[in-house]
Structures are given as C-alpha cells and as structure tokens.
C-alpha cells in the first residue's frame, strides 16, 4: 500500500502542519561531563561546540578520518561542564569517543534509559506546551533548552524538532514520569484539535523530508559538502576528519544530495542504501536515498544522491520508469 493513500498517515501529518501533534520521539542520549567536555566535543564534532553557550543546542555531524559523515547529532550545553548528545547510535558513539579520548579530562555515559522525550510540533505547539509545563515557553528561542517542571516532575524543554515547523518543542522527562507527561499531553491536545502521532512514517519521513531534513541513510559515506552541510563546519578549530575535508573541499563535490518530485502519485520507488537508480536518458546519474509522500507539498517527494557533473536542480530524470524532477530539498 502506498503511503500516499494511507489515511492515517495523512491525518497525522496534516495535524502537525495545521494544529499540533505530539509523540514519543525519544532518541538515545549520552551525557558528557568534565572540565574538558567542551574541548573534547569540539574535537569530535565539526560545528563550534566550545563556544556554545549554556542553554543552547547545536545540530552537527561527526566525521571519520576520511571526512565522511558517521553520525548526525544534536549537542545540548546544559550547564558548565555538562552536555547531552542526542543521537541514534549511542553505542557506536561511545566506541568512537573511547578511541579518540586521548588525554581529555572527560566522562560520558549512556543515559538513554533515564529519560524520555516527547516532541510537540505544529502551529499550536506553544499553546499546548504552556498548559503542560509550569513556566511559559513564549521566549524560548530556537535550539535553546531550559529547565522547567510539570507539577513535581522536573523537565527540560528544548525548542527544536524534526518537522520543519517554526514552532516545535521537545520535552525531556525522567523515564519514571513519562506516563504523566503522555496523559497530560493527550488530554490537553484534544482540547485544541491536536492528536498523538503514532505513525513512524510521519515521525521520521513525511514531515522531515518536506523540510529538507536528512536521515543517516541519506548521507551514508558522504562528506558534509555533498549534502549541503558546508556551513556547519568550523575550519577554525581542529576536529576529526579536518585534514581530509580540507583536501576534499579544494574541488567542488562530485556528488550532491538533491530532492526530487514525482507527479505520478502511484509511482513505486524505494530508497535506502541500495535505492532505485536515477537515470537521465539512459545514463545512471544517481540513486534514491529516500521516498515518501509530501502531504503538504501535495506530491510524492524524495532525495537522491546524484553525480554533480551529470545532474542538477531542474533536470527531468527517470526513476522506476516514471519521470521525476530534481529539486532543492525543501518542499514547503
């Protein structure tokens, strides 16, 4: 069955875009502490972490020595010497940190089981969060995180999300208290036309793809320049993969992660590591990494990693026998 015809997926997607949707979006969480925590994370990730103010967060990637992306994370600076790293690959991250710890005075531990995170996204997200937590979040800036509470339960509220919504929050609560949060969200969301999102397709694909957000499977064995992340890289500091990346960025990237649209709503296309071939004429120019329904955009959309010399935005290509148009990665 095509996602485009799935009424449940559409309803949940539309709820987020038009009202508010909330859902358990717990990722894996690594706590990093120590006097060298900032410097260590600055070395591990490509973005500027050392100068990240307390209460702020930053999206960044982690590269291997060849300059290839091996993880994308959000780093939260909670307090002096205290950081959280939100990732989906915490075990691999720990192994990587172990291998590159050198002499840094830093400790880290997997705290995934200790915390749950609910994402609240959509035009009425602020309204919903404000009735759930004690202190209003009206002034909370994008990619900021603050302490708050829900009754007696302490929470952390971050202004962030994976939907492309201008208004979106992520509430972190101790795992033991998550049912309180879920029931409160459920009862209050209903009053303002919000719903609980349960479809993985909505949480991870339809909303995020419309907004240009990537999954790791979109950027496997890519460097930041191939996927439009050049501005996230801070070359004014040392980081793992820097020397390789400096060589790489001397020439334009040979591949680019673009979007594509398909007019045929019934087109069957698959993505992933071995996704559908993208053809221009009869020539292979790339592969599909992701394909889903852009319910707000009103058409089926996806991403493709294409050879820069052979394909560009605006080109008409063929995927799975149907015409597609290469686009930028933001569809809304």
């Amino acid at each position: 069955m095509l996602i485009s015809t799935d009424a449940s997926v559409k309803a949940q997607h539309d709820a987020v875009r038009n009202f508010v949707g909330f859902y358990d979006f717990t990722h894996k969480l690594l706590e990093v502490t120590g006097e060298d925590a900032a410097a260590f994370l600055d070395y591990i990730f490509v973005a500027d972490i050392a100068n990240l103010a307390a209460g702020k967060a930053r999206y960044t990637t982690m590269l291997d020595e060849k300059g290839l992306i091996i993880d994308d994370v959000i780093v939260f600076h909670l307090a002096d010497g205290l950081y959280w790293v939100s990732t989906l690959f915490v075990e691999e991250l720990i192994r990587w940190l172990d291998a590159h710890k050198k002499g840094y005075a830093v400790k880290y531990k997997n705290i995934t089981d200790d915390w749950k995170m609910y994402s609240i996204q959509g035009p009425k997200a602020k309204e919903l969060v404000n009735v759930v937590v004690e202190s209003p979040v009206d002034d909370l800036k994008f990619f900021s995180i603050v302490d708050n509470s829900m009754g007696d339960a302490p929470v952390k509220v971050a202004r962030s999300g994976y939907t492309g919504e201008k208004v979106g929050y992520e509430i972190y609560i101790a795992a033991d208290n998550v049912e309180l949060l879920e029931s409160k969200l459920a009862s209050e969301a209903e009053k303002i036309g919000g719903i609980q999102v349960t479809e993985v397709d909505v949480m991870a694909y339809t909303l995020a793809t419309e907004a240009g957000f990537i999954l790791m499977t979109d950027v496997l064995e890519c460097n930041p320049f191939e996927v439009g992340f050049e501005k996230t890289v801070n070359f004014d500091k040392d980081f793992i993969g820097k020397s390789a990346l400096e060589l790489i960025c001397e020439v334009p990237p040979s591949r680019t992660l673009l979007g594509f649209t398909v007019e045929d709503d019934e087109a069957r296309i698959y993505g992933g590591w071995k996704g559908h071939l993208v053809l221009k004429g009869s020539e292979k120019v790339g592969r599909v990494t992701k394909y889903t329904r852009g319910f707000t955009a009103g058409k089926n959309i996806g991403y493709a990693l294409v050879e820069t010399a052979k394909a560009k935005v605006g080109d008409t290509v063929t995927i799975s026998g149907v015409p597609a148009v290469l686009t930028d990665r933001n569809f809304i």
């Binding site: 989906l88 690959f89 499977t217 069957r268 992933g272 590591w273 026998g321 149907v322």
Partner: peptide, 23 residues
Amino acid sequence: GAEPIKTECEHLTTGTYYSPTGT
C-alpha cells in the same frame, strides 16, 4: 516496476551492507 531483476546482493560487490537504520 521498472527496476531490473537483481541476481546478487550488492554487498558482494561493494563490501558493505547498511540496514534501513544506517547501521
């Protein structure tokens, strides 16, 4: 679908398999 029939897994050529979650 217009894709050709696969006669072997790609990892036999590329040396790598990535799961749908990127592992």
